[in-house]
């Protein structure tokens, strides 16, 4: 198996992503059934995918099993609940945001400038260990996602 360093930025970010899911609730119809898994889509490096799998192993997200998939193309994405994008490709990010704008999908950007301004929901800012958040409440509410005030208090609201 792939071996990860414990405090690597990928691992920390993975745990941030996992923790964020705890503060966000999805509408019931975002899932096909009660047993339907929570699906995470990753746009970016393989390393972050592996870190996520590592972090989530043995855990459940909001009481559901999970799946993590690595995508290269917006069109390939099917039935995800959370998209994490490292944002190396601005064009791609913009189309991604547009694509999932009203589809109950939480979009998290990895320190992408103007991510929230351009319609992204949560942007993890700063460098490890001084990480922070930017949150766009309007984007979240547009996607019918609810976010807990605990997380909002820590974040910069865009």
């Amino acid at each position: 198996m792939f071996n990860m360093k414990k405090n690597s930025p990928e691992v920390i970010k993975s745990s941030y992503i996992f923790n964020v899911t705890k503060f966000v609730s999805w509408p019931i119809d975002a899932f096909g059934s009660d047993e339907a898994p929570f699906r995470i889509g990753v746009f970016g490096d393989k390393s972050i995918e592996l870190a996520l799998i590592e972090t989530l192993s043995g855990k459940k997200i909001n009481g559901r099993a999970w799946e993590v998939d690595l995508y290269k193309n917006t069109n390939e994405i099917q039935g995800c609940h959370l998209i994490f994008t490292t944002g190396s490709n601005t064009q791609q990010t913009a189309s991604l945001i547009r694509h999932f704008k009203n589809k109950h999908v939480l979009t998290i950007g990895d320190n992408i400038p103007h991510f929230c301004e351009s319609g992204g929901m949560i942007n993890i800012t700063g460098d490890v260990p001084n990480l922070g958040f930017e949150i766009s409440q309007s984007a979240l509410s547009f996607a019918k996602l609810e976010i807990s005030s605990g997380l909002l208090d820590l974040a910069t609201i865009i």
Partner: peptide
């Protein structure tokens, strides 16, 4: 605890 669940999880000592 409730107020700090986020701060704990995200290690935000200041908040």
């Amino acid at each position: 605890g409730d107020s700090n669940s986020a701060t704990i999880l995200f290690n935000d000592k200041k908040s």
